[in-house]
Design a binder for these strands. Structure first.
Lengths: 135, 135
DNA sequence: CCATTTAAGACCGTTTTTGTCCTTTTTACT
DNA sequence: AGTAAAAAGGACAAAAACGGTCTTAAATGG
C-alpha cells in the first residue's frame, strides 16, 4: 500500500536529473529521458505539468528545453511528489471538510492525520539539492 | 497519493466493529455489513482473508459468524491494514532485494525508507482496543 | 435432511495507470 | 521567408487495479 506510481518515480528521476545540471543550463527532454530510463513522451507530459507550477522553466523551438524553475535548494521533494500525485491523503476521510460521518472511522481519523503529517514533514525536509548531490 | 483503498477502509470499519463487541460474541457478516455500511459480499471476502491470517476466527453454519482471533489489544492497525493492502511500500525500490540500480533514485531511497518506518511505527502504535473504545 | 452461514473461486464493469501518437505553436538559425 | 527543432496540447488505447457480484461448495446445528 501507499505506493508511489511510475509517474511519481519518473517525475523524481527527471527533475533530480535537472537539479544535477549546472544552474541555468537548458536540457532536452530526450536527454533526460534517455539518461533516466523514462519513456520520453511520458516524461514530456510530466515536465509540462511541472512547468505550469513553476517547478521548471521551458523553452520551445531550436535550442529549447527545460531547467529548474528555481534553485534546487528551494524545491522540496514534497512539492515534486504532490505536483504529480496530488496531495498526501492517506485516507479519504481527510479530504472532506471536517465531515467524517461514521463514528468508528472517526476514531481512526486522527491516526491518518498523524501519518499525513509525518510524511509531509519528511518530504518537506528534503530538497532537490540534497538529492542531486547524493544526500 | 498514498491513499487507502475502499477495501482498506471497509476492513478497518468491519474489524473495529468486531472489536467493539463483547469478547467471545459471534457476529454475522450481514450485521457488520449493515452496521458499517459496507457491501456484504465484499466484506465477507475481507473477513475471509482475515480468518486465514488469524486476525479473526470464523464459524460456519447456523449460529456461525465471526469474532476477533485474539484480544483487541493484540491486533494493531498496521496488521489490519497490511492484511488487506499488503506491506507498506512507499516506493517500488524498497521492495527489491537491495538493488536500486539508478543512482539518482538511490539518493531518494533512504527518504522512502524513513517514510516507511514512520508510517509503520504510527500504525504499530494503535490497537483495535484503542480504536474500539474511541481513542 | 434442511436451513443457515462461511469458503472459495469465477466473473465483470469501471476507473486509473501508463503510456503512444498526432497536430499545433514557438523559436532559432540560415 | 523558410526550415528545422523543441515543447504544448489533445486524443486515443492497452493493461492493470479497483470494487464489487454471483454461484457453488462445505460445514454446522436442529
Amino acid at each position: 500500500m501507499m505506493e508511489l506510481t511510475r509517474k511519481g518515480e519518473y517525475a523524481i528521476r527527471g527533475i533530480v536529473y535537472l537539479a544535477k545540471q549546472a544552474p541555468g543550463k537548458v536540457i532536452l527532454v530526450s536527454e533526460v529521458a534517455e539518461a533516466t530510463g523514462v519513456p520520453q513522451t511520458f516524461l514530456a507530459k510530466i515536465f509540462q505539468s511541472f512547468a505550469k507550477l513553476g517547478l521548471v522553466n521551458s523553452f520551445r523551438g531550436t535550442g529549447g528545453g527545460f531547467l529548474l524553475g528555481r534553485p534546487a535548494a528551494k524545491i522540496t521533494l514534497r512539492q515534486v511528489v504532490e505536483a504529480v500525485e496530488g496531495p498526501i491523503i492517506p485516507n479519504r476521510c481527510l479530504t472532506e471538510d471536517g465531515s467524517c460521518i461514521r463514528e468508528n472511522i472517526c476514531t481512526v481519523h486522527p491516526v491518518w492525520r498523524r501519518v499525513q503529517g509525518e510524511i509531509a514533514a519528511i518530504l518537506d525536509g528534503v530538497t532537490l539539492e540534497d538529492l542531486a548531490r547524493g544526500e
